[in-house]
């Protein structure tokens, strides 16, 4: 029984460590802060939750296990807020953003074109009725 518990802990903690390694590698690999945020979120979710669940399985008493799981719950609630604030900082302060964040600009242009086309079509319909 003790060994089963140990192997469960070892498997979960080592899996969490692998996710943390992937996250840090991604933070070095990507080039822009918004892309890096994507890699850093791996450690914020999978890494910390797998490690903490593994550690809670073989915690010394019930209350420490409960507190360790509480850390995971708190982290799941706080990490999206922190990422949101960080992304807002990046979006507001980066003046060369349009040079590499092209998806947003393309979508905006397409939406405007679609809206203009819809307006034209509506206008033609009205003229036809008149």
């Amino acid at each position: 029984m003790e060994w089963i518990r140990f192997f469960l802990t070892a498997a979960l903690v080592l899996a969490g460590l692998v996710f943390c390694c992937i996250s840090v590698y991604g933070v070095f690999r990507f080039e822009y802060a918004a892309n890096r945020m994507h890699a850093a979120a791996i450690a914020d979710t999978m890494g910390i939750s797998l490690c903490m669940i593994g550690l809670a399985i073989s915690a010394p008493d019930f209350f420490s296990a409960f507190k360790i799981l509480l850390v995971v719950v708190f982290w799941w609630l706080s990490a999206p807020v922190a990422s949101h604030m960080l992304c807002r900082l990046e979006i507001k302060t980066d003046e060369q953003r349009d040079e590499y964040m092209t998806v947003h600009m393309d979508t905006l242009r397409q939406e405007r074109e679609a809206a203009a086309a819809a307006q034209e079509a509506a206008g033609e319909e009205k003229e036809g009725q008149a």
Binding site: A43, M52, L55
Partner: peptide, 25 residues
């Protein structure tokens, strides 16, 4: 950029929380 630095600090915080939980055991 400053956002890269804050991002790295956030990641260090995550790793430190895991480290403190490891010391519980």
């Amino acid at each position: 950029r400053i956002s890269d630095r804050v991002l790295a600090i956030n990641l260090i915080g995550t790793l430190t929380v895991i480290m403190v939980a490891v010391t519980v055991l």
